[in-house]
Structures are given as structure tokens and as C-alpha cells.
Design a protein around this nucleic acid. Structure first.
Length: 568
RNA sequence: GUGCCUAUAGCUCAGCAGGAUAGAGCAGUCGCCUCCUAAGCGACCGAUGGGGGUUCGAGUCCCUCUAGGCACACCA
């Protein structure tokens, strides 16, 4: 598709010492389109040329030639403002969307590159709460967007299925299995057991010892411990799967921590060979104090494994299995230090430079309650299933009010309820903490998932009213030159660019914001223009625009994990 | 105590790796359905935590103070 920035940069590059790439970085968008479509700030050159920005702008303007793409250049302050041919832009954008349909915005920038996305990673036998939801939604969306951009993408659910906590679970299970209805309500009942055994451990140190011993036995392959552990795992996975199905989330790999437990020897040996492993207080550590990263424990004093070691084993395994270009860890920022440590230690594992450089912690903010942090042990978590059910229920209620005649109410309510919750989880910059508030999550007005869905449904409904969608080649693009149409077209033009930014920054919220803006701009267009019109030529042009928005909104939302309803 | 992160309107957030007049949504007030879906649209109200500095130019970069969060050895 035509690249106006490129064209402008080329023109400027021909008249100055600067190279094109540098110029492209300087080119920006004016605050409003009356000033121009692209701007080049001449301040940048003032120092080098020892001239005032004004003068530079004037001289440059003289030298730059206009053509069919660039129709006007104006000087404002020290800016050189370019006006592009919007008929060409409109034609290019809409025809491209017509041709590529759902794949519009995709490209092959990720070709031959493999990116691993580790996300969701809930703990077995514990409730799947809204913290995991945020993680899951962010990860799933990154996964989809990377894939859309041509990357070979592997989604990994690094299950929390190992560690001392399972020694505790096993101990509790052994003692009170019969008192709980584990088969029918596994997660809740197991949580109850977990809370109870924790309390007992606090009272009685000898019980805690038993728990630690259980984990040691589990690592050594004790039959009973393994049996219980497997059962816990199966029951939990079955429960989690319900949530994943509801959210439409899939993984390529379910290799959790336990998978790496027998692969740590190699890690330990390598670190030993490199001479960086030290004995300290009975444990084996790597000292990273000189880098300001404290110490990283590799093996506990009782000889059992620790998560850092398992994560290192995972890096080694993944480097070998996938030879990845990127390995993203979607994990809350509590673990910043942990990832800094293991990425540092990973330098001693003899993995390819490429993989080493591709390790990246996608650190996101915590979900907290008004009352503070959630805690499984204190029973203060909000479970995802409850939230999702509530959201769907609320959507259904609104449908009954607004559109009681609607078909497939349950189906649509599900999409809308989930859309609200998912959007709420990806709409903000991920590093920021989020205070959970029922009213915010379950709000369906304003900048929300349902808003985008609503605008989409509008486009759909308009498109269904016309007899046929025109061939975009026959559209008179002169008829889409009003401000509202142009804003929408410029948004559509930027879709791919936004997706590229998302993967560059690992920030899906950029896409979420984009979809809001596109929806708002289309809504303005819709209010200002009558789409179905007596004048067929006008109608066809507006229908084409509507169709394009319809495609991009649907695809964009789907990249966030949001499905579009047919009616609202 | 040390390190990292965050601070923009009453609330929740944008602000394109320093650029032109800091944008939205929610809440509040007021308007708009004989017209393609009012889960919508418009209007009003309202903001860069304090202090220094760098620069032609700072919400954005540096220093400092303040407030909050997270992490700092056998949990993950």
C-alpha cells in the first residue's frame, strides 16, 4: 500500500544531508488535519545548518516538488506541513481492505521468526482468579497479534504444578480427603484444604516438616504422592479448561514446572563448570550482588529444586526445542527481580546469543481489590468464573430490556459480557496496577468492549440493509472527502502500523485504544452522513467505508480475544 | 535500609521514544429517537504531585523531595 511518510521522507532526503530513515523518524502528525496530514519539524536541522527553522522551512519548501501524491506544502512556525492526496489515500486503503479482507493489517514481518509466549500459568489446585485473567487475556492477545504478523508463535501455559505447596496439598489431602466433596467442586474444596493445612502448619512446625518431606518424596517419585499430585492436576486442568473454552484461549504447550524438574541437573552442572556456583548457608547460589541483583538460589539446602532452577531448565529446553527469537514471559511485576536474575544466569547456559537476547519479561501491573491484595489463603480472591458469569448475566438483562425480540440471546449475551471483561483487561497500559471494581468491569457504556461491539453491529446492520456491496474499484472516492470520512480512512490506514507497535512494545492496549478511536470516528461519520441514500453513487462510497470499518473492527477485536455479536 | 515501578480533570485512563491549543470515557448538569440500532450523539464542567535543571521547545529527559506499590535467601 502507498506509504506517504516514505514519499515525503524521500523528497526531503533528496534535498538535504539527512538519510531517509532519520527523516521518517522526525515526521509527525499535526495536531489537527487542517494544518496538514504530515509535518516535518525543521527545528531538528537548525543547529546543524546554523539557520532559523523558519528559513530552513522556506528553503526546503522551494526545493520540494509537488506531485499527485503530495498536493500542498505549507509553513507554520518551524514546521513544514504536507497535504496528501486524500482521494488516492481513500482508494488505496479501501481497495486494500477489500482485497485482503480479514488479513488486512497482517504482514510477513515475523516470517521465519519464532516467538514463545508464556502466559496464564495458573497454580494447580488454586482458584483461577482475576489476576490470572488479566495475564491470560494479555498473553492470548499478544499471541494472536504475533501470529497475525507472520511469526511462528508458540503459546505456553507454564502451569504452577510443582513446589512445596504441593507437599502441603498432599498432606491435607491425606488427612481430610473424605471430608470434602472434591469430585464435584474440586478447586473450591482443594482451596479449603489448602487454607486448612496452611493454618495447621503455622500452629505446628512438625506438620510443615511433613509437607516439605512430601514434596521431596514427590520429586523422588513416591507412588502415593505422585498419585495424589496427578489427581490434583487432572481435576484442576479440567476446571481451568472451562474458563479457557469460555475465553477462547488455546495453548500449544501445557508443560508446567514439573516437566523441568528432571532437567535441572544439566543446569547445575553447567553453572558448576563455569565456576559461578557457590555454596552459601548450605544452599547453592549464584552471586549477582555486583550487578545489583542479589543472589539467585539454584538449589535449596535440603537439595530440592527451586523455581529459578526450573525456569533456567526451561530456557535451555526451549532454546533447544524451538531455537526461539523471542521468549516472552507474561508475568506480574512482582517477579521483576526473579527474571532479571535468571536472564543473567542464563548467560552461562551456552544457549545461542539470539535466544539470550530474545528473553523478555512482559511485566504487568497487579490486580488488587479496594481492600488490598488478593489472597487465596485469606479467601479474598475474586474467581474468574464468577466474574464471567456475572458479566454474561448482566448482558442478558440488558438485552431483555433493550431488545427482547432478539434471536440467540444467550449466545449474544455471552459475547457481550465476555467482551466487556476482556476489553477491560487489555485497555490500559499493562504495567499499571488495576483496582478491581465491579461497576467498572461490568460497565457497558463509553470506552468499553460493548461500545466497539455496538458500533460493529451498526455497520453490520447497515450492510444488511443494502441490496449489494459495491465493487470498491467502482467507487467515486471524491465522495469520501469530508472530515468524518477522512478521519475514519486515516484510522484504517494506520491499522497495520498499530499492530507493529503492539509487538514492538508488547502492549496490546495500543490496539484496544485504536479500536475505540476507530469506533468513535465511525460513529461521528454515521451521525453526520446518511449512508443509505437516494444517490447511489454516494451510497456506494459510504457503504464501502462502512464495509471496511466492519472488517477492521471485527478483526481487531478478535486479536484482543473479543468476538462480535450479530445483534445488540 | 537498598533497588525497581507508578503519579495527568472528582474517578478510570490517552498523550505516537521532546514538538503546534494536554485528548477521551465515567460521574454531574443540559439537550437529541415521526430519520440506517439512544449499549448512541452533542454541549457544559474540569487536569500535568512539589521544587530545581537540560533545550529553540518538557506531561514526556536529568536531579531532588513527597505519596503509593512491588521486590530484596531457600514460596512461586
Amino acid at each position: 500500500m502507498i506509504d506517504f511518510k516514505e514519499i515525503i521522507a524521500e523528497k526531503i532526503a533528496n534535498q538535504t544531508e539527512l538519510n531517509k530513515e532519520e527523516i521518517k523518524q522526525y515526521i509527525e502528525l499535526p495536531p489537527n488535519t487542517d494544518l496538514g496530514d504530515y509535518a516535518f519539524p525543521c527545528f531538528k536541522l537548525a543547529k546543524a545548518l546554523k539557520k532559523s527553522p523558519q528559513m530552513i522551512a522556506e528553503e526546503l519548501k522551494e526545493k520540494l516538488t509537488l506531485d499527485e501524491n503530495i498536493t500542498k506544502i505549507e509553513i507554520v512556525g518551524g514546521y513544514l506541513n504536507f497535504f496528501i492526496n486524500k482521494v488516492i489515500l481513500s482508494k488505496e486503503v479501501l481497495e486494500e481492505i477489500e482485497n485482503k479482507k480479514e488479513s488486512y493489517g497482517s504482514n510477513s514481518s515475523g516470517e521465519n521468526k519464532t516467538v514463545l509466549v508464556e502466559y496464564s500459568s495458573p497454580n494447580i489446585a488454586k482458584p483461577f482468579h482475576i489476576g490470572h485473567l488479566r495475564n491470560t487475556v494479555i498473553g492470548a492477545s499478544l499471541y494472536k497479534i504475533y501470529k497475525f504478523l507472520g511469526y511462528n508463535t508458540v503459546g505456553i501455559n507454564h502451569l504452577g504444578d510443582y513446589g512445596t505447596q504441593f507437599g502441603k496439598m498432599i498432606e491435607g489431602y491425606k488427612r481430610w480427603e473424605k471430608e470434602y466433596d472434591i469430585e464435584n467442586n474440586p478447586i473450591d474444596e482443594l482451596t479449603n484444604i489448602y487454607v486448612r493445612i496452611n493454618n495447621l502448619c503455622k500452629e505446628d512446625e512438625s506438620v510443615l516438616e511433613l509437607c516439605r518431606d512430601n514434596f521431596r518424596k514427590l520429586e523422588e517419585g513416591d507412588e502415593y504422592c505422585l498419585e495424589v499430585w496427578n489427581k490434583l492436576k487432572d481435576l484442576s486442568l479440567k476446571e481451568f479448561q472451562k474458563t479457557y473454552d469460555l475465553l477462547g484461549v488455546k495453548f500449544d504447550s501445557l508443560k508446567g514446572e514439573a516437566f523441568y524438574s528432571d532437567k535441572i541437573d544439566e543446569v547445575v552442572n553447567k553453572l558448576e563448570e563455569k565456576g559461578i556456583l557457590q555454596d552459601s548457608e548450605g544452599a547453592k547460589i549464584v552471586d549477582l550482588e555486583d550487578k545489583g541483583l542479589g543472589v539467585c538460589i539454584i538449589k535449596k539446602s535440603n537439595g530440592s529444586t527451586i523455581y529459578a532452577t526450573r525456569d533456567l531448565a526451561a530456557i535451555l529446553y526451549r532454546a533447544r526445542t524451538y531455537n526461539f527469537d523471542k521468549c516472552l514471559y507474561v508475568v506480574a511485576y512482582e517477579q521483576n527481580l526473579h527474571f532479571k536474575q535468571i536472564f543473567e544466569v542464563a548467560k552461562y547456559l551456552d544457549i545461542p546469543e539470539k535466544c539470550l537476547n530474545g528473553l523478555e519479561h512482559v511485566s504487568y501491573g497487579m490486580v488488587r481489590l479496594v481492600t488490598g491484595k488478593m489472597s487465596t489463603r485469606e479467601g479474598t480472591v475474586i474467581k474468574v468464573n464468577e466474574l464471567l458469569e456475572e458479566a454474561i448475566e448482566r448482558a442478558k438483562k440488558i438485552i431483555e430490556e433493550k431488545n427482547p425480540e432478539m434471536k440467540n440471546k444467550d449466545e449474544e449475551a455471552k459475547k457481550i459480557g465476555l467482551g466487556a471483561v476482556i476489553f477491560n483487561n487489555v485497555s490500559n497500559t499493562i504495567i499499571k496496577d488495576q483496582v478491581f471494581d465491579w461497576n467498572t468491569v461490568l460497565n457497558f457504556n463509553g470506552e468499553t468492549g460493548p461500545y466497539i461491539q455496538y458500533i460493529y453491529v451498526r455497520t453490520k446492520s447497515v450492510l444488511e440493509k443494502v441490496d449489494e456491496i459495491p465493487n470498491f474499484k467502482d467507487i467515486n472516492y471524491e465522495l469520501l472527502q469530508d472530515k468524518e470520512s477522512q478521519k475514519v480512512i486515516f484510522n484504517l490506514y494506520n491499522f497495520e502500523n498499530i499492530l507493529m507497535q503492539v509487538v514492538q512494545k508488547n502492549e496490546p492496549s495500543l490496539l484496544a485504544r485504536y479500536l475505540i478511536t476507530l469506533s468513535q470516528n465511525y460513529s461521528n461519520f454515521y451521525n453526520e452522513n446518511k449512508i443509505i441514500d437516494e444517490n447511489k453513487e454516494v451510497q456506494n462510497a459510504r457503504i464501502a467505508l462502512t464495509k471496511a470499518v466492519n472488517i477492521v473492527l471485527k478483526q481487531g477485536a478478535s486479536l484482543l480475544g473479543i468476538e462480535m455479536p450479530n445483534k445488540m
